[in-house]
Amino acid sequence: MSAPSVQLYSVRDAIDEDVDAAVARLAEIGFTRAEPYAFHLRTADLKRALTAAGVSAPSGHAAVIDAEDASAIFDAAGELGMTTVIDPFIPTDRWQTADDASRIAERVNALSEQAAARGLEFGYHNHQWEFTNKVDGRPIYELFVEQLAPAVVLEVDTFWATVGGADAPAVLRSLGERVRAIHVKDGVIDDAIRNVLPSSESALIVPEALQAAFENQTPAGQGDVDVAAILAAAPQALRVVEFDAYKGDVFQGIAESFAWLAENDTEAAA
């Protein structure tokens, strides 16, 4: 197995309390890679913590699509040694029509060119609504992908794609090498949550049914997602462990996912 990463958002409370201690604890689990979020807002702190723990950050999340100054975000990514910057979230109300898909794709394509000028890749991370929301019977995600420039990369959140009704392994196979990373995430998949969407302001302001999907997430291999098939469908993709929420000790959940990957991920590229 190639070295997996972990989305630092999973331990956001610990990060807010003591970023150095939180990153060090992830390193103790065995992680040598991490995926920071909103990294441009605390670049110096993250660089210090990552360096001290011997952890690299090949990818990171930031709200680039709506940023007034994307160059500042890309500069921060370079400071942290990233190669890939991912926008994690455009709300569901902006994924409704074919024009919406075209508008977002056009912006992503332009940002990809800006990132490339700094030696970076740029792409997008999905939730469930990009698959739940349909245009002429097709997931709007498909329309979006069809309009992306070749240089644009994708990070597929395999849990949320599954919640949205997608066959995640099939999606990964169709996207091929464009998939630079996947979020390895497991949990309870309930048809009742497929069409329950968050507010337009935040992916974290959600109805009760969707909140359950957050809290009922599990370590890899312990839920309803066919994680093994997902891994096999994207051998080239960086594996990024993530929890949106967890009922138990999230560090323990992350450790269990790390151990499961070590035992079961035989497809990962070196």
Rank of each mutant, 00 (worst) to 15 (best):
residue 192 A to R: 14
residue 7 Q to M: 10
residue 47 K to W: 01
residue 88 P to F: 09
residue 4 P to W: 04
residue 126 N to H: 11
residue 177 E to P: 13
residue 165 G to Y: 11
residue 127 H to E: 04
residue 8 L to A: 03
residue 103 R to K: 13
residue 87 D to S: 08
residue 46 L to A: 02
residue 209 A to I: 13
residue 125 H to Q: 09
residue 102 S to T: 12
residue 195 N to L: 10
residue 95 W to N: 03
residue 88 P to M: 07
residue 16 D to S: 15
residue 102 S to V: 03
residue 125 H to V: 05
residue 45 D to K: 15
residue 13 D to N: 15
residue 55 V to Y: 01
residue 244 D to N: 13
residue 238 L to S: 03
residue 203 A to W: 11
residue 138 R to V: 14
residue 19 V to Y: 00
residue 233 A to Q: 05
residue 170 A to I: 04
residue 7 Q to P: 07
residue 174 S to A: 10
residue 179 V to Q: 03
residue 270 A to R: 15
residue 68 E to I: 08
residue 258 F to H: 15
residue 154 L to T: 03
residue 145 V to S: 07
residue 62 A to F: 02
residue 24 A to C: 10
residue 158 T to K: 02
residue 33 R to Q: 15
residue 179 V to T: 08
residue 142 E to N: 12
residue 177 E to A: 15
residue 59 S to W: 02
residue 251 F to K: 05
residue 176 G to M: 06
residue 211 Q to S: 15
residue 95 W to D: 04
residue 26 L to D: 03
residue 196 V to F: 10
residue 160 W to M: 00
residue 181 A to I: 06
residue 25 R to Y: 14
residue 18 D to I: 10
residue 212 A to H: 09
residue 138 R to T: 14
residue 73 I to E: 05
residue 237 A to S: 12
residue 95 W to V: 01
residue 77 A to R: 08
